[in-house]
């Protein structure tokens, strides 16, 4: 005999189960829920910030406790580094300008410039089976989905979820992440796929015959610009292993990411500038000169 109370309970369960299933199907198959997710991500930001806060406080405390001499030494080192980089940059500016001029002569249109901005990584665990991080920049800072994220050493990943004040970045080591890449030495194109483990990428679609000439251990890999999401030429990884696999159409390759993926506290967001804006900027500088 089912009581009235119990029937009400079962009815309610069915309603909520259907609601969940409908949500999952929409979330999986379409982008309708993108804005809802963005709002919700903004809503839970206080929780994430609260978790992040003690870790950051501890870090700044240990920074403050550094001895004076240590800081002086660090400062001197940084100044040296800065000087060296500035010298390099002078040459780079020159080459960049020349490159742009040549491209314009050839009539080649390509996205030329990039703007970068620093974002802080929040000390929050997203999902232990995945490789994702949370950063403190969101819609209000102009972050968009599929935006490339890099650090000083190389590519880190791309933004997959944008909230109002924060966004979630999928690292290139996530098993769902695939990145079109190219070997610097030979120009061989391949795809670097995450394996879900720390610091390993697997290289897809390497044919067995190419192993002799086109790729070897120690080669550098950069983004190839295919797929339009990542700008061309950013460092990704170093090849650490290539094995021919006779039984299969493709050989197996593994690479180690250059950037400190899971140990970063600061990352860089990249905005690609359209060619027209770059030229406008140039005109402005010429006019001001």
């Amino acid at each position: 005999m089912i009581s009235k109370e119990e029937r009400k309970l079962v009815l309610r369960l069915i309603v909520f189960l259907f609601a969940s299933i409908a949500l999952m199907l929409t979330d999986h198959n379409s982008d309708y829920l993108k804005t809802v997710r963005a709002q919700l991500l903004g809503g839970v930001y206080p929780i994430q910030y609260l978790v992040n806060w003690p870790v950051k406080a501890g870090q700044s405390l240990s920074k403050n406790l550094n001895s004076h001499f240590q800081l002086l030494g660090e400062n001197a080192n940084l100044r040296d580094d800065n000087l060296r980089l500035q010298v390099k940059l002078q040459k780079f500016e020159d080459i960049k300008n020349e490159n742009q001029r040549l491209r314009r002569l050839l009539g080649a249109s390509e996205k030329l410039g990039e703007r970068v901005e620093v974002a802080e990584v929040l000390a929050v665990n997203i999902n232990q089976s995945r490789r994702k991080i949370l950063i403190n920049k969101g819609l209000s800072d102009g972050v968009f989905t599929h935006q490339p994220v890099i650090d000083a050493q190389g590519v880190i990943g791309q933004v997959i979820e944008v909230g109002i004040f924060s966004s979630i970045v999928m690292l290139i080591t996530d098993p769902e992440h695939e990145l079109p890449v190219q070997v610097v030495r030979t120009g061989l194109r391949t795809v670097a796929k995450g394996m879900g483990t720390v610091n390993r990428l697997s290289l897809l679609y390497l044919s067995n015959t190419e192993l002799n000439t086109s790729i070897k251990v120690g080669d550098l890999i950069v983004t190839s610009g295919a797929g339009q999401k990542f700008p061309k030429g950013y460092l990704v990884a170093t090849v650490i292993q290539v094995n021919p696999d006779i039984g299969k159409p493709y050989a197996q390759g593994q690479a180690q990411p250059r950037s400190a993926l899971e140990r970063n506290w600061e990352v860089l967001l990249v905005w690609q500038l359209e060619p027209s804006t770059v030229i406008n900027d140039e005109f402005k500088t010429i006019n001001s000169q």
Binding site: F16, A22, T26, D27, L33, N127
Partner: peptide, 13 residues
């Protein structure tokens, strides 16, 4: 689900 970035509705179910 939002905190863990899983499918919306997975934990809810």
């Amino acid at each position: 689900d939002v905190l863990n970035d899983t499918l919306l509705g997975q934990h809810a179910l």
